[in-house]
Design a protein around this nucleic acid. Sequence first.
DNA 1: TACGCTTCCGTACATCGTACGGAAGCGTAC
DNA 2: GTACGCTTCCGTACGATGTACGGAAGCGTA
Lengths: 248, 248
Amino acid sequence: MAIDHGADPARVLPLLWRTSNRTSYGHRLSVERIVDQAVEIADAHGLERLTMRTVAQGLSVGTMSLYTHVPGKPELYALMVDHVIGEDLHPVAANTNWRNALADIARNDRDRYLRHPWLLDLIAFRPACGPNVTAKYERDLSALVDTGLTVAEINATVMTLSVFVQGAARSQVSLRTAHAAGFSDADWWQAHKPYWSQLLDPEHYPTIRRVFDDAGRSDPDAEHEFSFEFGLTRLLDGIEMHLQLRSQ
Amino acid sequence: MAIDHGADPARVLPLLWRTSNRTSYGHRLSVERIVDQAVEIADAHGLERLTMRTVAQGLSVGTMSLYTHVPGKPELYALMVDHVIGEDLHPVAANTNWRNALADIARNDRDRYLRHPWLLDLIAFRPACGPNVTAKYERDLSALVDTGLTVAEINATVMTLSVFVQGAARSQVSLRTAHAAGFSDADWWQAHKPYWSQLLDPEHYPTIRRVFDDAGRSDPDAEHEFSFEFGLTRLLDGIEMHLQLRSQ
DNA sequence: TACGCTTCCGTACATCGTACGGAAGCGTAC
DNA sequence: GTACGCTTCCGTACGATGTACGGAAGCGTA
């Protein structure tokens, strides 16, 4: 599913920052309740099951009632993103170095993606600047601000790291959802078997052949864990190397 | 839009490897023509405009005629992915080292994403193993096979690199499409201005403030180019460091 | 000429986001 | 108390999309 194009900033920003004026008397509905319900559905059943109708049903209201509080679905998406980014924004420990800070941020982000896999689909586009997104950006930048890197380098570093975490999480999540959908590894091998004969032929694909011969079939989650830590360490090493050369 | 869940392997693999038997007499339609048309539409107008109806119209056939050759839309997506991955799979230069090989692959991949932005939406899930995807995988692995890395490390390295390239390209593409859709930087600033007062307040967001004060507003594409090369260099440095420690 | 397989496609339906207009609830002014 | 007006709530309906179904048309072969 190509995810929806971005929300209209003029409509979503007041919502994100909650600057709209609320009326005094009671509401059955509120932006908070709608967003909570949407997140709950997406967590439990994936983005495919998140429709305006299912959200409304979960809140026992008519579908169109949602539109009194939320302009449309793209805006709801933006609210969901800002919401879950805010749920574990613990500040970086004060007495730590940039390397530990970045590693903390990376693991923190990855955990969030594993908790809310749908988030990976919704941040393909640059997220709207809600309060939590902004606070996170502030925190990420501050981890590097005293390292001597230029502003462009700080931005590039933060982007590289966040992009790496997203990709690693995406890889892990897509395997998990495939399993959850009933596609086991055995099924996968079974479906591919007719083509493996060619694939595993050393003349056609010698390197794949070597890699598969050598691969101990271990726990997929453990493999992803290893890949994540391996890539993270390489990245941090590369940054550290740059800083050392810079400071000489 | 959350992109469609994966295609059924049992249905898409014979298509990808073109092992289905064709009849003898002439066809108005073929898998190739359908995929070409789909790629053309996605390139020109984005994934949103790619519908079974638009593809059929582009080929001057009835919508349902497509289903004689392609089981459904997820399978069409898989075919598109394998198709464009195959279009510039030049082999790695024989007499080069792993570092140049990886850098070549990274830039090659990035160019493809910029040429076919929709590809970023379609490979969020592990792509089906078509002939071109497999060939690319073979090529990517072979760049690292003689470095002394373990198989798990080779896999992790390839994943880290490809994930970085995807993310960097995604960032650049999302900014480009925003511009193409008529959202200029000025519009963006204008929409955010009411919130900037708080945002640029040093008490709330001191680091963002410093970064923005310091940032020379340069060409966005140039910024992305810098970020890409910066991240790539850090990553390759990190890998090289690991190899040197390993070889001692 | 008749048969059978493949290709082509018109119709129809379920599902989605959401425009529109009306009904109901609530505070306020008289 | 009663009328007014704003906000909230929501039933109906429409257009877009993927695709199931069954029929029509094309082609090779017996």
